[in-house]
Amino acid sequence: MEISLTHKQGNFSIDASFQGAESGVTALFGPSGAGKTSVINMVAGLMRPDTGRISINGLCLFDSALHIDLPPEKRRLGYVFQDGRLLPHLSVRSNLSYGMHRTPVSRRFVKFDQVVDLLGIDHLLQRRPARLSGGEKQRVAIGRALLTSPAMLLMDEPLASLDTARKDEVLPFIIRLGREFAIPILYVSHATDEIINLATRLVMMENGRVLADGDLEDFLSRPDLRTRFGLDTERRCLPRTNDRIAWTE
């Protein structure tokens, strides 16, 4: 995953370049207003960068120099929004299959039953989104994105609208997700505990700029960076990597 883009809107400008992991979770981390959501929207094709290049697993999605700009429906990315955004007029089952039916059969590698099983949403299939709890909604939203058999999953603070109990209900699913389907995830968050538990690679953003990016392990092994970014939080599972940090401040 190679991302390099600039975007200017009013007084706020984004100028971000980073490399993400080809597998596992790349976390886009920073305070609110850092431009994380804008970056992920540009990756999804919902916002157009002024200049730059976005490529994922060797597939170029956007290149201003080459005038490449794939529309969102052609990018093969699954997007889990902060607010779920389930289609209110469709049942949970139809929401889940909405993207699946639009993916050619030959390209589907995620099975419906497998996803329903993994996310524990079997008993919700007949319901409308209005009758789901916040945690259930996010699980369905994750399943819906997953069922498009995407080249990458984008997650924009999928747990931010949930309380702690609901978070603990959804977080394990996201952790299992990466392992079971081997789909790389670009995960936006400003919550340290989520990052520590999920990320293999970390991209620090502030004011539309990338401050630093590298493997989580390397960040954690440097006490100065741990303190600088407030990463001194207890961790439940430890990923292992050896890469060096690209420190750009």
């Binding site: 094709g45 919902l46 990315l77």
Partner: peptide
Amino acid sequence: GLEAAARTLGAGPVGVFITV
């Protein structure tokens, strides 16, 4: 936002209009 979500799920602009 719902229309944008449908786009990311693989529906084109016309498809989104008709189904969402």
